[in-house]
């Protein structure tokens, strides 16, 4: 009874949802119930059930297979975009916090400027110049993520720099870079993981949005956003075309957000019982 109440419900539900979609994405690499791109006009617009678990689209393609393959696109785009944001943003934030003054000012001004370009605007610019593709979507969302991580890292690091254990490390002769890596980074890792899951979910939403308006993944790469775009004219006729990919996006994003919330509670040392 107490075990049930103690269970971190957001973490459990979130992890389960994310696991489902992640495994769907991985399985789609080797197996899908039907051919992802295979059209079968005789079986078009089938409602869910009856040989096709989630129905078929107007070309008779299997929705479940497209969904699984689309998960793979969504997840890889989001992971790479968050990766870009973290790999560039975190060191920038650490450097800004460690060297107050000129460098800090420069990094933060650049950050403010980057915030003036919403992901969609970056995507429009990139697409206008290089043409639409999944790679360009990754770059657009990734650029948008850099200032998010830089700002978070800097803020958390700055408050740590005033803590006495950092002063103690400085008295022990450790340099700023070493302290950043040894003391600051492990103590903000929680925050970064939690923000990572949030940006991951935003990345999935952004990818879906870009693909929906044709700025993201291009045919024949399967994508949830494009499944929705394709369904638009048929939504009155076959609502499942919109419901299936829509619910997939919602559940994945919900799962990631719950996972983030759950991790925040689980990783927060203030909430952990460990005193003896």
């Amino acid at each position: 009874m107490t075990g049930l109440r103690r269970l971190n419900w957001p973490l459990a539900i979130g992890a389960a949802l994310v696991a489902i979609f992640a495994s769907a994405a991985v399985i789609s690499l080797v197996w899908t119930p039907h051919d992802v791109t295979g059209m079968n006009i005789s079986a078009r617009l089938k409602i869910p059930g009856d040989g096709y678990l989630l129905g078929t689209d107007h070309f008779g393609r299997d929705m479940l297979s497209m969904l699984m393959a689309g998960a793979q696109t969504s997840i890889s785009v989001a992971i790479l975009a968050v990766g870009i944001g973290m790999v560039l943003g975190v060191p920038l934030g650490l450097a800004a916090a460690a060297n107050r003054g000129g460098l800090d000012e420069m990094i933060m001004r650049a950050n403010d400027l980057a915030f003036a370009f919403p992901a969609l605007v970056i995507a429009i610019l990139i697409t206008a110049v290089f043409g639409p593709s999944a790679v360009n979507a990754i770059i657009a969302i990734g650029i948008f993520n850099i200032p998010v991580f830089a700002r978070l890292t800097r803020g958390a690091a700055l408050s740590l720099w005033t803590r006495e254990f950092i002063l103690a490390a400085r008295v022990s002769g450790k340099g700023r870079t070493r302290i950043s890596v040894e003391h600051i980074l492990p103590n903000i890792a929680n925050l970064l993981v939690v923000q990572g899951t949030i940006q991951f979910s935003l990345g999935i939403l952004a990818e879906a949005g870009l693909s929906y308006v044709g700025l993201g993944a291009q045919p024949p790469v399967p994508s949830w956003g494009r499944m929705l775009a394709d369904s638009q004219t048929l939504v009155g006729l076959a609502p499942h075309l919109a419901l299936v990919p829509g619910l997939a996006i919602i559940l994945t994003v919900l799962g990631l957000n719950l996972l983030g919330d759950g991790l925040r509670d689980a990783l927060d040392p203030k909430l952990r019982v460990g005193r003896t």
């Binding site: 979910s201 939403l205 879906a208 949005g209 929906y212 929705l228 369904s231 638009q232 939504v235 009155g236 609502p239 919109a242 990919p245 829509g246 996006i249 919602i250 559940l251 994003v253 919900l254 957000n257 719950l258």
Partner: peptide, 21 residues
């Protein structure tokens, strides 16, 4: 939690389905 997870363009399609169609 659910509101944040809903893509707005999908929500728009659902609104059209219900309130327009």
């Amino acid at each position: 939690q659910i509101g944040i997870a809903v893509p707005n363009f999908w929500f728009a399609m659902i609104l059209i389905l219900i309130f327009a169609i």
